[in-house]
Amino acid sequence: MTWHPVILSIQVTIVASLLILIFGLALAVLLARSHFPGKVVFETLINLPLVLPPSVVGYYLLLILGKGGPVVEWLGWRSLFTWQAAVIASAVVGLPLMVQASKGAIANVDPTLEKVARTLGSSEREILWRVTLPLARRGILAGFTLGSARALGEFGATLMVAGSIPGRTQTLPLAIYDAVQSRQYDLANQMVLLMTILSFLALWGVRRLEQPT
């Protein structure tokens, strides 16, 4: 078994997880604490990758990241069929899990605690870091773990925007598909076992986080 897909998968998942953490947290705070016109539509758009077929998500990403798309035109960043495109695909698909869980946890924090913090002189930013986020940490961690696990297992959208170039953009799920296609069942078995263990650990971790101590 070649280790390249494993290492690439880990690399993609780490970077995608960072994006999920930063954007997911910001979106969760925004959705939990503020009201603005079009909020429901906005939230639905974020959640869309949960229900859309991966090929549809991949197609949209092709439009956005590809030639003539805004990323190439405005930012001059050509990412299609590189590992960075795999990162984007994984992050987009993992994001809604993070946002949903974190938003719920943040909305559950008693607003009275935040009011008291205000009367004690804390700024809104201080309240976020010292009261809201620490109290929502379980939900945030659970969402983060689920989002990262989803990013690790990303297949369809990744295939469309990053391809499945062995040694360059072929992540673990893609390599498994490839191994089965070429009837290398020993290789497939090893990689499937590895994926299963990683996913099991992630879900088990989430369960532990959700149980109050």
Partner: peptide, 16 residues
């Protein structure tokens, strides 16, 4: 509220 210098203890105390 940050600058009103008022101590506020809500019902059930709302300790962190």
């Amino acid at each position: 509220p940050q600058v009103r210098r008022v101590g506020y203890v809500p019902q059930h105390y709302a300790l962190f």
